[in-house]
Amino acid sequence: MEVLLAIVIGILFACGLYMMMRRSIVKLVIGLALLGHAANLVIFVAGGLRRGAPPLVPTGADAPPELVADPLPQALVLTAIVISFGVVAFTLVLVKRTWQAVGNDDIDLMRATDT
């Protein structure tokens, strides 16, 4: 499964990066969102995969049963998911305002600070 997910991550990265390299500005935001998924999966897979066994402590016990999924990457990814949402939301509104202000969606025409 690690190999399969590594390939999936690679494809997600490739698609995200390709979208970010397009001149149409909306595609940039979508590429950013894809990149966010890919990065989250990297952290998740790199921490080691374990099927089932969520990191929960049963009621009354002090520790979970012997083997559970690693909780730390999960905590990191959880933070990352929320932050990438913040980034996408901000970029989306920025693009909307840019479109309103510049009246063009070709990134190549946005090379100067004055429009």
Partner: peptide
């Protein structure tokens, strides 16, 4: 496309190593 594939391939290799 080529550049994006290179970037993606690098990430695949890195993930495999990280595991």
């Amino acid at each position: 496309m080529l550049v994006a594939l290179i970037g993606g391939a690098m990430m695949t290799v890195l993930v495999l190593l990280a595991v």
